[in-house]
């Protein structure tokens, strides 16, 4: 398996707070990677650096063998790297269907967007397919602002999918979601992974991460401290010390 995404020694400080200090990580093509660690360990900052929302102070990110350090979010997305946010971010005053259409056809020139409708028949059909995939067909014409938190998570996943990204970074896909919906999201991820999409998932729900991921990376104090298959991670002394700790603490995080 080739390494699709390589993060090499990335550091980032916000004022006096060192959010990332020399963090490295690799993600193999076709895998589901997990990223865990205590709150404030730099997981979301790492996502922001990878997707171009935050510029790293030092270190490099490469995607599909290409340097993407310092690229803008729209460029990163154009290369096939999509993400969701921890606190879901949808376009609340657009309809659910319009939300889906924002990300269609990244390849075309931005000037052409003036002279064409908001969606071709094929794009419309694809958007409806994906809405069916996440079970939101019924709400296609509704304003996205009325969706529940869980439905927003599904919509966010669906509108990232519309451009067929090679890699999707999910920031806490199971956070604040009821068990049935978590199961729903898990099965969607597995299904997409089988058809070739690579995932990197930040999540505090250990059951979710350990059951789903091929490889788990643990972060603490802005560094990736250890990385390996779930079984290995569970037993690692450093991980127990930094994050999993005693059984009760692990429950708190979930």
């Amino acid at each position: 398996m080739t390494e699709l995404l390589v993060v090499d020694g990335v550091s980032k400080a916000f004022g006096g707070v060192q959010a990332l200090s020399g963090c490295s990580l690799t993600l193999s093509e076709g895998s589901i990677g997990g990223l865990i660690g205590p709150n404030g360990s730099g997981k979301t900052t790492l996502f922001n650096v990878i997707t171009g929302y935050v510029r790293a102070d030092s270190g490099q990110v490469s995607f599909k063998g290409k340097q993407v350090t310092g690229a803008k979010p729209d460029q990163i997305f154009g290369l096939g790297l999509g993400r969701t946010f921890q606190l879901t971010r949808i376009f609340s005053r657009l309809t659910v269907l319009e939300n889906m259409l924002v990300a269609t056809q990244q390849q075309e020139s931005w000037l052409r967007s003036v002279a064409r409708g908001s969606a071709s028949a094929a794009e419309h059909e694809r958007a409806m397919e994906l809405l069916a995939f996440v079970g939101l067909t019924r709400l296609a014409e509704s304003q996205a602002g009325i969706l529940s938190y869980g439905q927003r998570k599904l919509l966010e996943l669906a509108y990232v999918l519309i451009s067929d990204p090679a890699v999707i970074l999910l920031d806490e896909p199971a956070g604040g979601i009821n068990p049935t919906l978590i199961e729903e999201i898990r099965s969607r991820i597995i299904e997409l992974n089988k058809s070739g999409t690579t995932f990197l998932i930040v999540e505090h729900n250990m059951e979710f991460v350990m059951g789903l991921c091929d490889k788990v990376t643990v972060m603490d104090m802005g560094c990736a401290i250890v990385s390996g298959p779930p079984a290995e991670i569970r037993a690692d002394a450093r991980v127990l010390d930094a994050y999993l700790g005693s059984v009760e603490e692990a429950d708190d995080d979930a």
């Binding site: 997707t51 979010p73 990244q106």
Partner: peptide, 8 residues
């Protein structure tokens, strides 16, 4: 910002 992250 979300729009930027979707390639806009």
């Amino acid at each position: 910002d979300r729009a930027r992250g979707l390639g806009v």
